[in-house]
Design a protein around this nucleic acid. Structure first.
Lengths: 133, 133
DNA sequence: CTGACTGCAAACGTTTTGCACGGTA
DNA sequence: TACCGTGCAAAACGTTTGCAGTCAG
C-alpha cells in the first residue's frame, strides 16, 4: 500500500504524520485515538493530540477513514473498505472484520421499516476462540 | 407499565426522578441525554444533569436500560427489551425498532469468525418514508 | 511563495465526583 | 434511623480552536 498516493487520492496533503496514521491503521486494522496516539509518539515524540484529531476529522470528512462505534467500548477507526461487519471479543477486545451477505437482512429491514436503507452498521460481540480456551 | 415496580425489580429505589426517566423512555422509545434533560426539566425545574447521569449509569449497570450507538449521531437510550435492530432516518433522525430474524446472519458470523457470539448491534441508516416524499 | 499543517496552550462541551441536604424504605 | 438519591459546584475528561512558526506543493 502506497500511503502517500492514497492520501493524494483523497485530496489530502502528504505529511509524515498523516502517512504514519494511515500506516498504523493499515497495519493494525482498528485503533482508538489513544492507541493511535501512543503508537505515533514512537515516531514523533512531540506529536500533538490536536494534530491527530484534526487529521482524523479531515480523513473522516473525505471518507478515507471511518469510525466504528462499539457497544461498551471506545470508538475505533479503520481505513474505508468494502462494506463489512465487525466481531468484537468482550474479553480481549480484539476486533475482526467479516464479510457477510447482507442481502437477506436488508430485504427484511426494508419490508419491516418502510425506510430506504443506504448504510448498515453491524457489530457482533462474544468471545474469540483464544479467550474461550 | 408500572414504572415503580420495574425499578424495584432492578433493585433501584423508587424516586420521582427515576420514575420520570423510565416514563419518558417508555413513551418516546429512544432519547439522548439532552432530550431527556429537556423533558425532565418540565417536571423538575431544578433537576440536575448530574442526577440524570448518575441514574442512567445505575440503570445501565443493571441492564434496565441500554445505550444505542448510532453512526454520526449522539447515543440514545432505551428500555431493555427483546433483541432487535434499529433503523435511523438520516434526514429527520427518527429511530425505529425492528424485529428481524438474526439466525441466518448469526450462523454466518459464527462460521466466518470462530467467535462465539452473544450479542449483536445492528443499525441501518437511510431515509424514512415521510422524508422521501 | 502561498496556503495548509503542526504543536502548543487555552477553550469548550460532556461526564464524573464530592459534599451537604433531603427522601426512601 | 440508616442509607441512598438529589442538586450544586468543582473537577476531570475528551475534543476543538486560535495562533505562531514550519512545511508541502
Amino acid at each position: 500500500m502506497n500511503y502517500a498516493e492514497e492520501l493524494k487520492k483523497y485530496n489530502l496533503k502528504v505529511t509524515p504524520q498523516r502517512v504514519a496514521i494511515v500506516q498504523e491503521l493499515y497495519l493494525f486494522g482498528h485503533l482508538n485515538i489513544d492507541q493511535l496516539y501512543t503508537k505515533l509518539l514512537n515516531q514523533f515524540p512531540s506529536i500533538s493530540l490536536a494534530t491527530i484529531y484534526k487529521n482524523m476529522n479531515a480523513m473522516i470528512e473525505r471518507i478515507f477513514i471511518q469510525e466504528v462505534k462499539i457497544p461498551h467500548e471506545k470508538s475505533v477507526y479503520e481505513l474505508s473498505k468494502a462494506s463489512h461487519a465487525h466481531v468484537v471479543c468482550e474479553k480481549c477486545k480484539k476486533i475482526e472484520d467479516i464479510m457477510i451477505s447482507t442481502q437477506g437482512v436488508l430485504e427484511e429491514v426494508k419490508e419491516k421499516s418502510s425506510f430506504s436503507i443506504t448504510n448498515s452498521a453491524m457489530v457482533f460481540s462474544g468471545i474469540c476462540s483464544e479467550c474461550s480456551k
